[in-house]
């Protein structure tokens, strides 16, 4: 194989934001993404929205997966979205949310620009194929 052939790989940031300390799910997701052939950057626990934005911008990820189980999504997600906009990174980053999001809050997240929300029990293949189909073209 020539070293010059174009090689694209889907890059994902799996982010744990806020005070929520449960990252088993995020770990499982990170491994599943890796096994699907994605390049996964895991943020680690207890990240501030600004840190997630910094990582998403610098790593130029195609997909930002935010895992929130604490119920603070209405505060944290808007901050991340605003941060991405500040660095012109919002338009070509696919934002997905995983975790426990009450039905009443879903519409608001979609309006903010979250592409999809995956609740507990979502089959891994569903998330992976959603990303495959919706990962933005890098231009």
């Amino acid at each position: 194989m020539s070293a010059d052939a174009e090689q694209r790989s889907i890059r994902c940031l799996v982010a744990k934001v806020g005070l929520d300390g449960h990252d088993r799910g995020a770990h499982v997701i990170a491994r599943a993404f890796r096994d699907a052939g994605f390049e996964v950057i895991y943020s680690g626990l207890h990240r501030a929205p600004a840190e997630i934005v910094q990582a998403a911008v610098q790593e130029d990820v195609d997909v930002l997966g935010i895992s929130i189980l604490s119920g603070a999504h209405n505060t944290l997600v808007p901050k991340i979205v605003d941060g991405l906009k500040e660095y012109d990174a919002f338009d070509d980053t696919l934002i997905i949310v995983g975790g426990i999001i009450p039905d009443g809050d879903r519409e608001k997240l979609y309006e903010l620009g979250v592409a999809e929300i995956f609740g507990p029990g979502t089959p891994m293949e569903e998330t992976v194929s959603f990303i495959r189909e919706n990962a933005p073209e890098r231009r």
Partner: peptide
């Protein structure tokens, strides 16, 4: 798979 977990950032 070509996949990777890039963990240095943590």
């Amino acid at each position: 798979t070509g996949g990777a977990v890039l963990g240095d950032r943590i």
